[in-house]
Write a protein that binds this DNA or RNA. Structure first.
Lengths: 259, 259
DNA sequence: GTCTTAAGGTACGTTTTCGGACGTTCTAGA
DNA sequence: TCTAGAACGTCCGAAAACGTACCTTAAGAC
């Protein structure tokens, strides 16, 4: 995704922060605290107040909803394409419905929720990018809802792997079958069978607690249509080009930045 | 449904509008166009621009996501507890990912998307209430995603009926089994079996194209935990009391707010 | 090197839902 | 009043996923 680096934004890899003009970044920067994200770190506990939000630079975080009787299920994924702590933008006493935790370690910029709220008030581009990301998450959540209701495990797993792979550097996904089964809301044994099928086709390679994507395009071919829906809509909402390997050079939507 | 809108009867039934102070309402009112919502009316087409948003006064609208290969699935429900057209608040060229349509006829106030955007800029309470509702939809979407992945049809249908019932006047839900099956993403035959079981237990009564809730509390008892999660979180986000049967007083037909 | 344990492969019967079909009943319109 | 079609109840075999269990294997601790 070629974004021309300027003197101000070169240090950021987060896609929301990279989109900010120099003056906004200057206002925001003093409040950003660089932090390291470690595996299993909980960014927000479910049904707890949100004091700080996180703009990811690398690594991957998952949001899970609780069913009470049947464990947690993944409802959203955030990498450096967004930030964790959407409610900070949406209400004055923000609290997280979901549990947000780190699965793939990395770095982030931490920011007090109240500061983000104030800053979004003052900085139009920041607000625009963040609210667009809210819309992305709305879309992602609901597509996952439809996907969970309609599509079968092989397609869902493939979609999930591609989406995760898209949001990180490299092809290694450090996650166990146990973890995948929890995220998709199925049995571990089911993941085992499907993952072996994908491996037999040469699309992934499994080792213990790690899955390596060998053929991203092939894997995308196995994924359900939801992958394409999510990526296309995400690109349209954010005003960027889709990630898909075979994507045509999409004629930019309104607020396409120069490149 | 004879509602007589006298010139003085300007009080709103929409919960977002009811929460506005007099001055904000006065600013907003000239832009509100009262409209009638008829069955099957499409408020927003999927993947199309949003020109107008709708604050429902009565009736019920559903949002559906498209799976491409397996039809539409319900991902959200809006009655007079909210408004249809969230993206109007989130981006300058709003477009709807979902198809939004009317299932239960009623009335609404129509508003140009651009006007809502401008008004939300100027009117703090309006913005607050609407953004809170965005958070409610985020929460609702993701709980439905988890529910679709984990819970079985009987519980999901019960939840769905109670949630719909909560958002309208009375106990009659004008919808066919065919429709219900599409919303929940299952076969019609499955709905038939489960609905008959609920009827045998005296919780609902079915006629052609209509389901009457006979025992709301009993039906809630059959619903999965997601009902409680959604209602509790909705109340917390909006700052109102939960709708549940055992809730404290001030809950009659929906949540009454005084200003 | 050994030991411990988490991670993963596989198998069993069972339950749920599927896809499809057919017949019945009610309702709207000719 | 009659009729076509929508709405619904029911049934079938098939497929998917379930819950559970047992065993093997690899990685890390000592």
């Amino acid at each position: 995704m070629p974004v021309v680096p300027t003197a101000e934004n070169t240090s950021f890899r987060n896609e929301l922060l990279r989109a900010l003009p120099a003056d906004e970044l200057q206002r925001l920067r003093p409040h950003l605290v660089p932090v390291t994200l470690v595996v299993s770190q909980v960014l927000h506990e479910a049904e707890a107040a949100i004091d700080e939000v996180f703009f990811l630079e690398s690594g991957l975080a998952f949001l899970t909803a609780d069913t009470r009787d049947h464990g947690l299920v993944e409802v959203g994924t955030t990498g450096r394409d967004g930030f964790v702590g959407l409610p900070a933008l949406l209400s004055p006493e923000p609290f997280s419905v979901h549990r947000a935790f780190v699965q793939i370690p990395g770095r982030a910029h931490r920011l007090r929720a109240a500061v983000l709220r104030d800053m979004a008030e003052a900085l139009p581009t920041l607000r625009d990018r963040c609210l667009r990301y809210v819309q992305v998450m709305l879309m992602q959540n609901s597509q996952i809802a439809a996907c969970n209701a309609r599509h079968e495990l092989p397609e869902r797993l493939a979609r999930w792997l591609v989406m995760s792979r898209d949001r990180i550097d490299g092809d290694d996904l450090p996650m166990t079958q146990e973890f995948l089964s929890a995220m998709l809301g199925v049995r571990r044994a089911g993941i085992s069978v499907v993952a072996n099928a994908l491996q037999a086709q040469g699309l992934i390679r499994q080792s213990r607690g790690r899955i390596t994507v060998l053929d991203r395009a092939g894997l995308e071919g196995k994924a359900c249509t939801c992958y394409g829906m999510i990526e296309r809509n995400r690109a349209r909402i954010m005003g960027t080009s889709p990630r898909a390997a075979d994507a045509p050079p999409d004629v930019g939507q309104g607020t396409r930045r120069s490149q």
